[in-house]
Simulated scan of single mutants.
Amino acid sequence: MKGQEWYQEDDIAEEYEEKRFSRGGRLIDRREKQAVLDAIGPVQDKDVLEIACGTGRFTVMLAERGADVVGLDISGPMLQQGRQKARHAGVADHLEFMRGDAGRLPFPDDSFDTVMAMRFFHLADQPASFLSEMRRVSRDQVFFDTFNRFTTRSLYNWALPMGSRLYSRWEVSRLLDSAGLSLKEADHDFAFPYGLYRQIPNQLASTFRDIDRTLIKSPLGKRLASVSYWNAQVP
C-alpha cells in the first residue's frame, strides 16, 4: 500500500489533522463527514467497521450518533490519537480501535451492517482484494471514496511524492462487480483538487467552494469531479 511506512511514523498522528484539515481543509472535512452520514443514513445501533480509520474522524462521529463502531488501521500512533478522541467525546464504550491489515480482516463473514473506507483506495495497490474483504465482512453496505482519473486530480498528482491511485468510473464498476456488490448510488464532487483548499485560508476557500459547487452542478459536473463517493449494497 502506498505510504504505509509514512503513516506509521510516530509523529504523523500528531501532524496528520493539522496538515490535512487546517485552513481550507476544514471544508473538505465537513463534506466528507456529510457524505458518510448521507450514505449510511440513521446510524443508531448499527454495527460499523471503518477501514483505515486513522485518528478517528469518522469513527468518533458515528459513535456519537449511536453506532457501535470498530476502527482498523495500520498505524499504532494514529489509533492512540483515536482512543484519546473517543475518551474526550465520551464514546469509548461504543468504539473499538484495532491495529490490522485491511487485506486480511480479522472478522468472520457478515460481521457488520456497514463497512466503509475513506481516503484509502487512492493508496491501495490491490484494490480488488481490499474491496472483496470489505464485502465479505459486510451483511448490507460497503461505502468508499476514490480520486478520479482525467480530472484536476491528475495534475495535482504530479506534485505528490507518493502520488495516488486514480480511478475511472469503468474501473470502479468492474471492482464492484468482481466483489459481488451492486451500486446503490454515487455522489461526485470537487472540481478543484483537495490540495488547493489546504493551501488557502478558510475564508478564501469558501469562495472557491462556491465556484466549485457551480461547476459540479453544470452539465459537465460529473466529468469534472475529482472525488467520488460510492455507496454499494450486498445483494
Rank of each mutant, 00 (worst) to 15 (best):
G195T: 10
S178K: 10
A67R: 00
R209D: 12
E17I: 02
V172T: 12
T55F: 12
L224C: 13
M162A: 08
T146E: 13
G41H: 09
R139E: 11
D177N: 12
I40T: 08
K2A: 10
S154L: 07
L95D: 02
M116G: 07
S206P: 02
E185M: 11
V115T: 10
L49D: 03
V91I: 12
D101P: 05
F144L: 09
G195Q: 12
S154V: 07
A63Y: 06
R31P: 00
F121E: 00
G41L: 09
D11W: 15
P219T: 09
S75E: 09
A13W: 00
D73Y: 04
F143D: 00
E133N: 05
G100R: 15
P193D: 06
G25F: 09
E18Y: 11
A124P: 00
R149H: 02
R135F: 09
N231V: 10
Q199N: 04
S226F: 03
G24M: 04
E50L: 02
E17K: 03
G66M: 01
V69T: 12
V115N: 04
P108F: 14
D109I: 00
P106K: 12
S206K: 15
W230P: 00
S154A: 14
N157G: 06
D109H: 07
Q141S: 13
K19G: 03
Y167A: 04
D109F: 02
S138K: 08
L37K: 07
M162K: 03
A117M: 04
V115Q: 05
A92G: 02
G103Q: 07
Q8W: 13
L79F: 12
I28V: 15
I40G: 02
I28T: 06
G76Q: 11
R31Y: 06
G56M: 00
S138P: 09
L176G: 04
V36W: 00
T59H: 04
E185I: 04
A52W: 01
L105T: 03
R119Y: 04
R31I: 00
P42K: 13
S111K: 03
D210V: 14
F144S: 04
D47G: 15
L72N: 03
T151G: 01
G56S: 02
S226D: 11
L166D: 13
N202C: 15
G76S: 09
F208T: 12
R20I: 11
Y156F: 10
W170L: 09
K217Q: 07
A179G: 10
F21I: 01
F130T: 03
S218L: 11
G24T: 01
A92F: 07
G82K: 00
P161N: 11
G25R: 01
T214E: 15
Q84E: 10
G221S: 14
D212T: 14
P201S: 11
D110L: 05
K184S: 14
D110E: 08
F192M: 06
D29G: 11
R20E: 15
V137P: 04
M162V: 14
